[in-house]
Amino acid sequence: MAGTGVSGPLAVDTRSIPEMVLAAAEAALADAQTDFGNIDAVVTASVDLHDGLTASNIAVTEVVGAVMKPETRIAGDGLAAAAHAACQIWAGAYGTVLVVAHGKASMADQDSVEQWAWDPITIQPLGVGFTVAAGLQARAVMGEGDPEAALSRWATVASRRWQAVGVGSRPEDVLASPVTAAPLRALMAAPAADAAYAVVLTGEPQRRGPVLKGVGYDLDTHAPGDRDLASWAGLGRAFARACRVAGSDTGAAFDIVEASCRYPHEEELVAAAVPALADSDVAPSGGLYRGVAPVAAGLGRLVDTVDALRSGPPARALAHGTWGPAGQAHAVAILESAP
């Protein structure tokens, strides 16, 4: 990991997508003490329906410096784009790859965009977005247990995350906020945001940068009724893959974890899917509560992980990204401090 760059997150970024992306890309290159001329290939993450543009990557081709270079677009979370870039480097295809992801939630009503990911015969006519899927999942996680206890637990977690990002919502504020999709309350959810993230990956040895040891990703079945909603089994499988690539034991503990949890119940899903994380704080930075940029947030988790590894003692870290309804898709990256 040679460099990272961030633009946002902001609740509303009045700049255009190319300007947000350019800011993040330039920051990552500066951090890596390199320039566009040393980039062999670019991987971008974007989704046409989020951006309201067909072939949404071509709007950023220039600002990511991909003119007359290879560019790959991933229509999924930016952490998956980073995984793709890592594979390109491991395969020997390219030496240094720039990865950029952007998401601009303020551009459109997210529920109406997300509806279009559902099956048109069985689910779309219900008019539900991913918030409803999250509500169904929270209910499934609650299971037969005491609803009040779960709500109180989640309100405490949400409050802690809000405090970490400088918002003073107390557990009682969270519980008192409006119900969005029962049992979820408005203040349980991390807020939608606009952001762009960039990382420079290289096969060259780095003095400073942590080493990306393994990546993995996995998708669960699509229809909520076809999956066990009370489990992020896909995360477990993605994690096992990343461990296999890293050559590490799935039971080995992590010093730093940055998971993409938009709701408190998702932190419980992480702990259940990856026992090695059961005792970890999965969002020490406040995680997504600073703002969730669609299909970019996971790359933001990777950026936070890299920053934490660089500033602390030698450590082992995990970054996680998710996209789709109720955590249908997961990407995992395993990192270690530079030797």
Binding site: T14, S16, E19, G52, M107, A108, D109, V113
Partner: peptide
Amino acid sequence: ITWHYSATE
């Protein structure tokens, strides 16, 4: 879907 597009500066 209504998209709100920002122009570059």
